[in-house]
């Protein structure tokens, strides 16, 4: 079989039209995962043995088992045990599963970033009379954000790639559509070639955004250029 470039051109728009589904899953799960991660971080501050053990288990579970198994477990397994999960559709289950999974990675990235802010920054803030919340808001989080950008972006790229397994729950995303077209035309190479190009360009764009954001958040690249309502007199 020869590589049929015309077929590639032909199916490209078709497969691309499912990109919004992939993006929707990725961004929605990503956003939920971020919120969950912040919540996990906050829970980490509570001194309770049982709670901390549960959190550790949560992280180990989601990082230590394959995401596809987690999705099956959530979608098919839990529905058998708890009837409420029967009404869950594949898309919702995929988003829930991927959010939980990504949150286990993202919360660790955030924790690392917060920890790498010099402790003196916190002390100096408190010593100046700021409250703990103000110190976190004005000093720790902005500095941690800069540090967290590369790892969180990596986590997000991982999430996009994981989202391709959502097809196992019957979700019609880029991957599912590719698989279907390939199956009906037997032009597997061309179809998956298109899918690979789409995923590759998508993650490349996100990586570019990461570099831009890193630069934007780095004080070293904006020194002297910041606007101030008052100038030197």
């Amino acid at each position: 079989m020869r590589f049929d470039f015309r077929y590639v051109i032909k199916v490209f728009p078709n497969i691309l039209s499912y990109l919004p589904v992939t993006l929707g899953i990725a961004f929605l799960s990503g956003a939920i995962a971020m919120l969950l991660s912040v919540a996990l971080l906050a829970l980490r501050k509570i001194h309770c043995r049982a709670l901390q053990a549960a959190l550790n288990f949560y992280l180990d579970f989601f990082r230590g088992t394959p995401v596809v198994v987690q999705l099956f477990f959530l979608y098919y397994g839990l529905a058998q045990l708890f009837p409420v999960f029967k009404n869950l559709n594949g898309l919702t289950a995929a988003i829930i599963g991927l959010s939980l999974n990504a949150s286990s990675y993202m919360s660790e990235s955030m924790r690392g970033a917060v920890q790498s802010v010099h402790p003196r920054q916190v002390e100096a803030g408190l010593a100046c009379g700021l409250t703990q919340t103000q110190v976190m808001w004005h000093i720790v989080f902005p500095q941690a954000a800069r540090i967290a950008v590369p790892t969180l972006t990596n986590d997000f790229i991982g999430l996009i790639k994981s989202s391709a397994v959502a097809f196992v729950l019957g979700v019609r995303d880029v991957m599912a559509q590719t698989k279907m077209l390939g199956g009906s035309s037997y032009r597997f190479f061309e179809c998956y070639f298109v899918a690979i190009i789409i995923y590759f360009i998508l993650t490349k764009l996100i990586h570019t955004f990461q570099l831009w954001l890193e630069k934007k958040l780095d004080v070293r690249t904006r020194n002297g250029g910041k606007k101030c309502s008052r100038s030197v007199s």
Partner: peptide
């Protein structure tokens, strides 16, 4: 805390400000 202020050895300026 608001009655006193402390000067540390180093790293005490807020780096993002």
């Amino acid at each position: 805390r608001r009655k006193s202020s402390m000067i540390f050895q180093d790293h005490s300026l807020f780096e993002n400000k």
